[in-house]
Simulated scan of single mutants.
Amino acid sequence: MRKTERYRHFTDYFTTHFPEPETELTFANPYELIVAVVLSAQCTDKRVNLVTPALLAQFPTPAHLAAASAEEIFPFIRSISYPNNKAKHLAGLGRMLAQDFGGEVPASIEELQRLPGVGRKTANVVVSVVYNQPAMAVDTHVFRVSHRLGLVPKTATTPLAVEKELVRHIPEILIPKAHHWLILHGRYICVARQPKCAQCPLTSWCKYYADVISKQEIIPKKTAPKVVKGEINNESGTTK
């Protein structure tokens, strides 16, 4: 199947069945989103959503966060992965937002990446979700699912290579949505260890399904032959 056909199947299915996907992170404004996304690195959205209400109640604005130390932030995020580093990132992020950006979350990927704890993936999430820009954030789900579906080649071995490939082939207006489509499909159906292919509606054109799953054969377990008294042993030629 040609790549253009795969992309057409992909966009046709999701625009029909999930026309308005949304992030599962809870937020009310750009500041709350960037805090949540920084915390979500190598952590589930569910865990982040449990932590952010108390954290943001204590530090409701960049100015409040800027005035806090990492030690003051830590108790609110202790259950998050890598809490020490993330507490330091948030303290630095608050200060830079307050001092360099007037308390506003910048709208460009380049400026966002200046903030502590904000890499390209986080920056892409913010500009895509908040500012509806055609940016594709590539996390482990997007990376895995795009390869399995055959949307990107095996030679796309880095998140940036996958990002460029997806942005090149997905219509610009759909890129912010496609980011969520790939994440949610990877989170609930095309999971890492045992993808739920039996539940997946994309198997008719999925490259992974065609190359791997459909070729798997169920091999019955071998059972030891029963030995009957007086029966010839095929290996020794003797009788039992």
Rank of each mutant, 00 (worst) to 15 (best):
L65D: 01
A66T: 06
A68S: 10
I73A: 04
F74K: 09
P75Q: 03
P75C: 03
P75Y: 03
F76P: 00
I77D: 15
S79Y: 05
S79K: 08
S81M: 05
P83L: 05
K86E: 03
A87K: 00
K88A: 14
H89D: 12
A91L: 12
L93M: 13
R95K: 13
M96K: 07
M96R: 10
A98H: 14
A98V: 14
Q99I: 12
G102V: 09
G103C: 06
P106S: 06
E111N: 11
E111K: 10
E111A: 11
L112C: 08
L112T: 06
R114F: 14
L115M: 15
R120I: 11
T122K: 13
V125Y: 07
V127R: 00
V127E: 03
S128G: 13
S128E: 01
V129Q: 05
V130T: 15
A135T: 11
A137P: 08
A137V: 04
A137T: 00
V138G: 03
V138H: 03
D139C: 09
V142T: 13
V142K: 03
F143Q: 01
R144Y: 10
V145D: 04
H147G: 07
R148E: 08
G150T: 02
G150C: 03
T155C: 11
A156W: 11
P159D: 00
E163S: 06
K164L: 12
K164P: 10
K164D: 11
L166C: 02
R168P: 05
H169Y: 12
I170D: 04
I173G: 00
L174K: 00
L174Y: 11
L174N: 07
I175R: 05
I175T: 02
I175P: 03
P176V: 01
P176A: 02
K177G: 02
K177E: 07
K177A: 12
A178Q: 03
A178H: 01
A178T: 01
H180V: 06
W181Y: 13
W181L: 08
L184R: 10
H185D: 06
